[in-house]
Each structure stands twice: as C-alpha cells, then as structure tokens.
C-alpha cells in the first residue's frame, strides 16, 4: 500500500464553525509526516476524523485502506494515538493504564513497555491523579509506542515534556521509522519537525495550504533582498512576486517569492547593481507566514490549490 492516509475534500462543521473546509491530506506509508498549523486550524479535528470519533460531513477519507468511520474498530487495532492533552483515570496507576490501553488495542509488547518506562523515566506505580502534565504525556506515549502497530497518530504528543524527554521521544520516532511504521505528527516544535519529518503539511483554517518536503516548501517562500543600485530604480513594485518594497534613493530592500527571484534580479541588474545580499527564508519565517492571521495572496496559495 502506497498511502497510509488519504483525505480528499473533507468538510466538517460544528454548528456555524467550519472546522474542516475541503481538507486534502496524503501521508505515504513508512514516512514521518509533519502536520503543522496555528491553534484552531483543524489539526485535532482532522485526527479525530481519522480516528472515527467525528464523522466528516462530506469528502473522502481512507486510512490504512479502510474507512475511518465504518471500519473504526478494526483499523484501531493497527494504529495507536496520543493526544496533546492525555487524560487519565485518576484512581488508576500509570502502569495499569499503559497495560489497559495496550490490551484494549489487542496486545502490548511487554519487553518494549519495560524499556520505554525506563527510557522515559516514568514511575508506573503513581496514581494518575498525581502525575504532572509531562508525566501524563509519557503514559500516553509509552502506551502507544509499546504497541506493535502500523500507524502512529500523534497530536502534539510532546507538549509538557522536558528537553531530555523530547530527545528520547525523537529517538523513539526514528526507531519507528526504521521499523517501517508510518507516523502522522502534529507539532508546533519546529526543531522536532525539522529533525523528524520526511514531509510536512501545513493546515490553515481547515485546509491544507502547503504540503511537501521542507526543501520544497522553502522554495515556495520569499527571499529577502537588499541591494545598492547604481541609479534610482523604476517601479519595482509592479514586478510579479515582489512584496514589502522600501526604496531610499538607490537603496532598495524587498522580499520576493522564491519562484520569481529570477525576474526580480534581472530588473535590478538592468538598473545596475553595486552590492546585493540575499537571505533565504528561515524555517520560522516559513511557518510564521502561514500562522499569521491575514495571509496575503501569493504563490504559496497557488501552490496549495495545486498540491
């Protein structure tokens, strides 16, 4: 099977809120897929639709070759899920909950369970009500990672983990990848995404606005240009793909869509260039651009509609 998750034009309303607005998402088997977007963009809704907890209003979703709503129970035996805010039964101990969730899924690798408890430094004897946020996440992670499943759905799984545990988590995900498992990882931690993910999808207001490898995504963003020209330039703002232009005499700074950089440079050299610096977008800029509330129209959105 080539694709582990495929969603096409999925819509989901809650009353008047349009949580998913024609979402398309494709996760290939065996890849670690990053799932990014601002708060309220629809990440958790997407994952809950994939879990069959919510029913999509329209559109098509396929998970491990099955229908996430109709075949929920049988599909769930092949996947594990960790939410961003793991809730536990207060009167049960962490160890009991790990075992229970594993058994409800149809089995748990006891050796791996023990190994993970040690690596995550969890005290499994404590009652769940006494766990901190980070420890609750560990319980959820251990229960998921100790199961022999094909697919991991992780919804901001490391919220509340300390940096050491974050590193343990990254090791674990890399091991999962080597074992051939598919991971959908929703996250805000860019370093985590950069080091773990093969491909990334960015979701905004219920739609995936970009998807691809990080290198591909960088290509879709803007490059900052600062140039000292030999004369005052003409109307650079009229050039396609140029934004935030500031001109002080012969000194210009602007941003240009990376795909249109060629045209902009030609315009500058036509005037005559004395000096020029160009800075490719940082990863932060890449994401911030999509997290900002008002997205200016640009090639990024064109890219989204064709992806």
């Amino acid at each position: 099977m080539e694709t582990a998750i495929s969603m096409t034009d999925v819509h989901k309303h809650f009353g008047r809120t349009h949580a998913l607005d024609g979402l398309d998402l494709s996760v290939r088997t065996g890849e670690v897929h990053g799932f990014l977007g601002p708060n309220g963009a629809g990440k958790s809704t997407t994952i809950r639709v994939l879990l069959g907890l919510l029913r999509a209003d329209s559109g098509k979703a396929t998970l491990l070759g099955g229908d996430p709503w109709r075949d929920a129970t049988s599909l769930h035996r092949r996947l594990a899920y960790v939410s961003g805010d793991v809730t536990l039964w207060p009167a049960l101990s962490g160890g009991e909950i790990i075992d229970l969730l594993g058994r409800l899924r149809g089995g748990l690798n006891v050796k791996r369970r023990q190994e993970l408890i040690e690596r995550f430094e969890l005290d499994p004897r404590k009652k769940a009500r006494t766990y901190s946020k980070g420890n609750r996440q560990k319980v959820g992670l251990i229960a998921a990672l100790a199961s022999d499943v094909e697919l991991l759905l992780l919804d901001e799984p490391t919220s509340g983990l300390d940096p050491l545990m974050e590193a343990v988590f990254q090791e674990c995900v890399n091991e999962e990848r080597r074992a051939g498992r598919t991971v959908l990882l929703s996250s805000h931690i860019l370093a985590e995404v950069e080091s773990l993910c093969d491909r990334v999808s960015i979701i905004r207001k219920g739609r995936v606005v970009e998807t691809g490898t990080l290198a591909e995504l960088r290509h879709l963003t803007r490059t900052s240009i600062t140039a000292e020209l030999t004369a005052e330039p003409g109307d650079l703002a009229a050039l396609p793909g140029v934004h935030d232009l500031r001109t002080e005499g012969a000194h210009v700074t602007f941003e240009v869509d990376t795909s249109r950089i060629d045209g902009a440079l030609k315009a500058l050299t036509a005037v005559g260039v004395r000096s020029l610096t160009s800075r490719p977008p940082t990863l932060e800029e890449l994401f911030l651009r999509h997290y900002e509330d008002e997205l200016k129209p640009g090639p990024a959105e064109d890219g989204a509609s064709t992806s």
Binding site: S93, G95, E96, L100, R103, L104, R125, K126
Partner: peptide, 19 residues
Amino acid sequence: APRPGPATARPSLRTPLAL
C-alpha cells in the same frame, strides 16, 4: 497522601467491562 498503585495491571483488567 494517595498510596502508590501497582506497576502493572492485573491480567483481568483488559476489557471495557473490567475498566
């Protein structure tokens, strides 16, 4: 103070009914 619980679940804790 709440007492610590067992580190592993009893074998019987494996169904929704047991929960």
